[in-house]
Design a protein around this nucleic acid. Sequence first.
DNA 1: CCTTAACTTCACAAATTTGTGAAACTAGCG
DNA 2: CGCTAGTTTCACAAATTTGTGAAGTTAAGG
Lengths: 183, 183
Amino acid sequence: MRETIEPGGAPDDARGEAARDEAAVSRFVERFAADLAEAGMQRMAARVFAALLVSDSGALSSAELAERLRISPAAVSGAIRYLSQVDMVVREREPGSRRDRYRLYNEVWYETLTRRDQMVARWESTMRDGAKVLGPGTPAGLRITETADFFEFVQRELPKMLERWRAQQAERRAAEAREAEAG
Amino acid sequence: MRETIEPGGAPDDARGEAARDEAAVSRFVERFAADLAEAGMQRMAARVFAALLVSDSGALSSAELAERLRISPAAVSGAIRYLSQVDMVVREREPGSRRDRYRLYNEVWYETLTRRDQMVARWESTMRDGAKVLGPGTPAGLRITETADFFEFVQRELPKMLERWRAQQAERRAAEAREAEAG
DNA sequence: CCTTAACTTCACAAATTTGTGAAACTAGCG
DNA sequence: CGCTAGTTTCACAAATTTGTGAAGTTAAGG
């Protein structure tokens, strides 16, 4: 294993990235992964996702992920399977090589919130069934119907919110372009 | 243990509720609890929460919860501790009795989404720190800054959305009141 | 086609989480 | 002031989850 030691003491095992304090980057990766894990994401999936997030290219091979996170190829494989399933990462076959690259999905947050939305849809359906079982006129039935209504409301609102985000981003980029032209 | 058997075969161990098919109610409780558990909630907390949701009074004692869910008082205690911490349930000391009652928090979903919002705030803070580490001009730094911006956007939007829900509910209730008066 | 790099799958050991019984604690009630 | 119903805490056993090494699979390159 070729390895050079930086003045700071951090091993230069993140070749291909802009010069940076790899120890600090690693702390950041672990911190964000912990945040995600606390929110219910599998630990390894969270770490792999965070590692991709801090890579300049936005894409890494299995070997690179294994090296940077100090985990086995099997763990990488499991994490990638999960991240692909939820469309947070896409797998690319590098032409002229037998090595896959895993790339952050273009609109990760858009996709992730959309998934959330689908989950809320399932909850709403569960609630509507529950309201039938409890009887629509009973106190419990009323409570559950209101819950279902709330879930329905959220489903209507979320896509609109994402649309506003897109619009805001488009506007910002346009402004930056004008800025660049003027300067 | 006093127990009567209904024609349907379901034990009548949910005294105090409107007449209903307790077996079907139980299936609903378990289904919704499973939905919540899949979204990352502790299993027992999810079951206790679902059990409260289907109660007509919206409040149950520890003994009632233990009986309906067939779990130990210890398990109830643990679930309640969690649900109180996240403000989904409030504990009431019944005056003139030594028995607590656990009541659904008035605006459970409002509270729950507000919590979510706080989590997003932490994520944003993590991202801003990360951007500094990576260097604001690098590709990774830019990606992370955009992520932070998105989290910031979500934090601005969520309270507005909840406000719209409240307004819609108020309007609906007003309409129902007019309806009742006219009818 | 055979070799071999790269990835996945599988069985298992380790670590973590979960729920329980039992003991400890708390506060109404006599 | 005890007594005791109700709840919490604690230590532990069971179940589940997690990550690994090793075997298996796939496909690029000779």
